[in-house]
C-alpha cells in the first residue's frame, strides 16, 4: 500500500519545481537579493528537508534524489561539477542523523534546516574557494553571505511549513 503512495511522484516533481524556483527567484528579485549582502535562495534544500520531515514510513529515497538534483544544479546553474552532487546528499545524511535524536516537531525541523543550510553553504563556499570561483574571505562569507542567507531561508521555511505539511499529508492519505 505504501509502495504506491502518490507521494513518490509528488516529491520528485516538487523537487524539480523547487530547483527551477531557485533560479527564477534569484533572477526576479536579483535587485533585492544580491546587493552588498547576498540572500541566496535554497528552496531545493528546503524541499529535501521537508521530504525528510514528512516522509514518515514511506521511503522516498531522498538521498538519491538529492544526489541527482545536485548533479543537475552543478551542471545547469554553476558549470562546476562535483560540488552540490556531494553536498546535498551529505546535508540530507546529517539531517536524517539529527532527526533520529529529535522529536518530530516544527522546532526540530527548523533546527534541522538551520544546520543543513549552514553545512551546505559552508561546504559550497569551501569548494568554490578551492577552485578560486569565490573571491571573498571567510569572515566576509559569514557576515555578508551566510547570515543573510540563513535569515531569508528560515523565514521562507516558517512561511511554507504549514502549507507543505498539508500537501504531504493529503497525498499520503490517498494511498
Amino acid at each position: 500500500m505504501l509502495r504506491n503512495s502518490p507521494l513518490r511522484f509528488v516529491f520528485p516533481i516538487g523537487l524539480y519545481i523547487a530547483f527551477c524556483l531557485d533560479g527564477s527567484v534569484s533572477q526576479i528579485f536579483s535587485k533585492q537579493l544580491f546587493g552588498s549582502q547576498s540572500f541566496v535562495p535554497c528552496i531545493t534544500l528546503m524541499w529535501l528537508v521537508f521530504g525528510l520531515l514528512f516522509e514518515n514510513e514511506i521511503n522516498l529515497h531522498i538521498g538519491l534524489w538529492a544526489a541527482l538534483i545536485g548533479f543537475i544544479m552543478d551542471m545547469f546553474y554553476f558549470g562546476t561539477l562535483g560540488v552540490y552532487l556531494f553536498i546535498l546528499p551529505l546535508t540530507v545524511y546529517v539531517c536524517r542523523f539529527l532527526y533520529r535524536y529529535l522529536s518530530a516537531t516544527f522546532i526540530s525541523g527548523f533546527l534541522m534546516y538551520f544546520i543543513g543550510l549552514t553545512i551546505s553553504m559552508s561546504f559550497s563556499f569551501l569548494a568554490n574557494r578551492f577552485v578560486d570561483l569565490a573571491n571573498i574571505t571567510a569572515t566576509n562569507f559569514l557576515v555578508s553571505v551566510l547570515g543573510p542567507t540563513l535569515a531569508l531561508n528560515l523565514v521562507l521555511f516558517i512561511i511554507t511549513y504549514y502549507p507543505v505539511s498539508l500537501l504531504f499529508n493529503r497525498y499520503r492519505e490517498k494511498s
Partner: peptide, 15 residues
C-alpha cells in the same frame, strides 16, 4: 532572453 540566474553569491551568472 534571460531564462534564469545562478542562485549563488559569488557567481553572478545568468542563463
Amino acid at each position: 532572453a534571460v531564462i534564469t540566474r545562478t542562485p549563488s553569491s559569488w557567481q553572478n551568472q545568468i542563463i
